[in-house]
Write a protein that binds this DNA or RNA. Structure first.
Lengths: 224, 224, 224, 224
DNA sequence: GATGAATGAGCGTTCATTCAT
DNA sequence: GATGAATGAACGCTCATTCAT
């Protein structure tokens, strides 16, 4: 005998295990589509196919739902990046490319790529959310890239640039790409090609950071 | 024909003509402080010293008020940049620095610097607004930088990089700085120093773009 | 016929029979702690160590649960008071004190003391509940005290005061004490001492009610 | 030409001066009818003939609306009682009766008489409200009566009873009457007659408090 | 032209009640 | 019998917009 006739027809269906993931997926969709403040919990519930009250069975508030989306989506991606760092041996230039492109593939091309725009947009109005995101995502992502730059400098691969600023300048175009694709991308006739964009950025950045064997006339004079 | 007839009438007329500008200044303040959605028209009216109803005498809706803010604030700044381009003679590296630092001083350090964050945040929810901003601000700003890069390439100063992507990569850190300062800047202990940040960016970018007399092993091989 | 067949069945049966009492005890705790409207059935269930659904196995609704609490708590206390009346012989002044102090000890100092406040609060919103409480608790409690006063008057101990009003005036301070301790008592620096309060009340009341051998100038002139 | 055709027909009617009083009257009605927690602001608005939003034009929250009801209704009544105290000369027995009966006529027979029940009911769940009420109403009302008792004792009219407890015992029947009439009064066949009830209370209380020229056998032995 | 009182749709959150398991 | 996931109707509060004055 099959399990039941049709789950879609019953109003009460027990889905305890699957629910949180479904709810989070629906929430991610709507948060990315509308932004944090403009997201209505009704819409999230409707997207997940449940009632608004059900949301509160799993998450205490809009804010905790949002945090769960971050915790379940972006934080693991960061952690995987940290694993990649630890497992890596070889030139830091390679590791840098691996991390940047990996992040793009994992985050940039998925729905998660819409989160940073949302966070930039709402950080001022929801300081607690901003703190959470800064601690859990930004500082860890930045720390990861900074460690790569510092290791490269220590290994003699990179020039001695201030790692704080170098990190920002390495990440800025990546962040910009993320924001762009969730804002004005539909306004351009010629849409940006992320692979090409990131490729050029990486080549310019790595070349700019690379320690030159014999500093020629055009080398950066004391970039610190 | 003289501008106005009597002084008494003049003062009244001048007041009436000054109203929109006062309203716009107040709106800019609040929009930048709170964001678009969180801005209450009551607050704008209070800041301008008028009643809420008066706002509707001049602007149809919150959205049209917001558009007017952009039209009156960012577009003239772009136009001044275009003037600088036309008046310039000499190396394009100099012009690029002049434009980037000029934009930072004029826009980045003023209230207007908060607009881009707003636009990125609301572009998806207000497509018409996004189109308007893309046409009036983004494409003109980008075009300006692109023309600098193209002129530099034509003059043999810069390497032959795809100008569309080069432009984005030159501007991305600037945009990032703008957004950062209106979002997460209060989360960091060590606040970013814009002059230093832009200085390093310019040196890296100009060095990366600069055509090298004799391309050594580490030079960019055909970055196109 | 013996009560139950086997010990195993007994234990199970006993558990099932104990359930309502456990639920009622939990409900009394929460109702008294939070009030009727602010009581959440989740809390009652949690306190009783059962699920919320189980509550509905035994009681149709929040209101019927509340009624059951009253039936099981206050009504037996009234009945014990009636037994005391019947068993008493001797002066009515003694009986009155016995009943008042007994009620205080049994009801006032226990959880049950919170019920009258609830009933006063909800009587208007739940008329059916009010009728039930009036019939089962109030009219019987009043009747008891009234009979004491009437007996005292018939025995020549008390003056001929209208027993309806005398009863109310004897009970009012008791009710007031009950309500006070479940409402504003935490606002006062010097908390009320129930023994002292009731002691003074009793002495004043009994003295006021006591038939004076020779009615002096200050005696109550026919208080009817 | 008359002012306007019909105010009832226009949706926007400017009522600024009259509004607060109308709102307060409507709020008092509903609060007394339903209690604090069970009062819906929609109902208050509907009773006042305005929209719910209009309520928030005048009062920040449900709580502040309620406080305004107290401040505008009960506090002035207390103040008038304090004036009566100051203006009085003559026996304290007279003053006590004047105050008790005055309070009854002014508060007990109006809608305001429903407030105390509501406060007893909600004090535990809204401690801030309880503090406010205790400070503004209870402690002042109690203080007033206590001063009468103390003055009477100092003048030799009253026996030396603990004024804190004497005050409570004088007021308890009054409070009880107020609560009763807003809770169970509709359950009784023979409704209580307030004048008679208070009359008997006053005679018993004043007689109980009165210092006896020559303490007979039945006088209170050291009621302290 | 200017005002500001009034509106009403909408949102986050709560909780008594239901019912598939 | 017992469970607890799911529901949905409320409720307090907000705010862009309207319009009588």
């Amino acid at each position: 005998m099959p399990k039941t006739a049709s789950p879609a027809l019953t109003r009460w269906t027990r889905r305890k295990e699957a629910r949180p993931a479904e709810l989070l997926a629906a929430a991610l969709d709507i948060f990315v589509e509308k932004g944090y403040a403009a997201t209505r919990l009704d819409d999230v519930a409707a997207r997940a196919g449940v009632s608004k009250g059900t949301l509160y069975l799993y998450y205490d508030s809009k804010e905790s739902l949002f945090k769960a989306v971050i915790r379940g989506g972006l934080v693991p991606a960061i952690q995987r990046g940290e694993k990649v760092f630890e497992a890596h041996s070889g030139p830091m230039t390679e590791l840098l490319e691996k991390i940047i492109f990996g992040w793009w593939e994992e985050v940039g091309t998925s729905q998660l790529g819409g989160i940073p725009k949302l966070m930039f947009a709402e950080a001022k109005n929801f300081p607690e959310l901003a703190d959470f995101y800064y601690t859990e995502v930004i500082s860890r992502g930045y720390g990861l890239v900074r460690k790569v730059l510092e290791a490269g400098r220590d290994r003699g691969e990179f020039i001695a640039i201030d790692p704080e600023y170098g990190t920002r300048l390495v990440l800025a175009p990546l962040v910009f790409l993320l924001l762009w694709r969730h804002s004005f991308s539909m306004c351009e006739r010629q849409p940006i090609d992320p692979e090409k964009y990131l490729g050029i950025h990486m080549r310019l950045a790595i070349d700019g950071l690379r320690a030159r064997p014999a500093a020629g006339a055009s080398a950066l004079p004391e970039a610190r």
